[in-house]
Design a protein around this nucleic acid. Sequence first.
DNA 1: AGGCTAAAACCTGTATTACAGCTTTATCTG
DNA 2: CAGATAAAGCTGTAATACAGGTTTTAGCCT
Lengths: 255, 255
Amino acid sequence: MRKDVNKLAAKDVPLKPATGTGRVDQVIDYIRDYVARENLRPGAKLPSETKLSTLIGVSRPVVREAMRALAGTGLIEMAVGKRAIITPLDGEMIGQVIENAVLIGQADTRNVLELRRSLEIGMVALAATRRSPDDISKLRSLLEAMRKALHAGAEYSALDLRFHLALAEAAGNPLYVILIEAFRQVFEASMRDGMERRSSNSEVEKVQQLHEAITEAVIAGDPAGASRAMSDHFDEAYDKFWSDRIGRLSELQRE
Amino acid sequence: MRKDVNKLAAKDVPLKPATGTGRVDQVIDYIRDYVARENLRPGAKLPSETKLSTLIGVSRPVVREAMRALAGTGLIEMAVGKRAIITPLDGEMIGQVIENAVLIGQADTRNVLELRRSLEIGMVALAATRRSPDDISKLRSLLEAMRKALHAGAEYSALDLRFHLALAEAAGNPLYVILIEAFRQVFEASMRDGMERRSSNSEVEKVQQLHEAITEAVIAGDPAGASRAMSDHFDEAYDKFWSDRIGRLSELQRE
DNA sequence: AGGCTAAAACCTGTATTACAGCTTTATCTG
DNA sequence: CAGATAAAGCTGTAATACAGGTTTTAGCCT
């Protein structure tokens, strides 16, 4: 007696009957639409799984799979006992996607570094035209802290990340912040070793000088100069990461 | 008699017992490790769900949720009847992630266009140094086709996309190709309307001229010139998309 | 009456079983 | 030997059950 019910329930449900794709995909679309329709913002709660499943007319496992897929793209976050919430995009998702590409041999670390180079060169140009007084003082204090931590290795690396993030914020485009974080994640995963070898005094001093040049240009409102300085900064990184550097890339973007 | 079995099966399983995170997350890690360990490449098949579930010691729904999450990040692809396969990264996933950000109001279309601008300016500089004879002939033939389709609206748009993709390929970095595709997707979703309004003869002619300028610089092996031309191209786009353009961005990156 | 505690209601995480429908493989037949 | 057909395997989905975490409610004590 129960089997017949199952068959029926599996066939004529109140869902877009056409699409032909699986039910899970339909629920994914449904939830996306729901977020758009209700104008949900980060922190907002989704209906419970059971509510959604009865509402849409599918079983709870299907709803769970759909949610898990959306959690995979970083739209929502699932937690035990609590209802799923909308999460702001952070670098992790994009970082993971790029990691995937590296994992299956579709891209390598040099590709990623090139990408980051393009991005940050454009980013500082924007930062030079949009930086606020707050941004300027933040950059200055970071630079000062970095000078003090010149020979502190790990601490300098952490500050370096914050420096680039501060530039991204100064650029006034949230996507830059997200991508900087994503790249950091990829590099950490991809080259768990290396690093820390810029210990040489002259090298670290040069890096600091380049940081200062970037900052000065940004503060002075000089986009071209900022781009040039960032370009030099990446040339440094290239030299450091690959001894067999494939021809200084400095010649590329700044004439 | 069955319940006790369940309880046991739910407690002491041969899985990393420590992490504390949910089982699904552990299976996600397991599969990622599996892919890395076996050096799987796009097209390779994953073990069946039941095999994985018995192997890892979790139920099939858990394996399915993990797979669904990985499918969400674009690492694998699930199909009915067939086993899941490794899929190459394409623009769709990153496009979807950025769409999510726009969906929840974390970024807007201008942010995306700015990002794309940075990327493509760097991209053509690389293209100008790495283009192969094949790339050159491809760009030339595309340019010719575009000239013939100058007033064909939709067709010109399609060719425009292929033109930018050809540049991405010439840059010799697969990530550029992926991101160009991702951006296309975001723009299509985000501005289902507009577009098609560059019908004016003088406007479309100017676009074509900029395309030609980019191509010439790339072929000539002139990175700075290519970047400059691409920068102009994006200024055009800005003027077209937002009448209240926020100050010509041309001044930014090319001195 | 007010604040704190304990219980109930709700929710997610996971397991089990069942079956429909699609794919692939192997077998059997002409 | 080749093509058709049946069997085996796999995924998609549903229904049910229960453990354990979270939030809310209601009662109790001060």
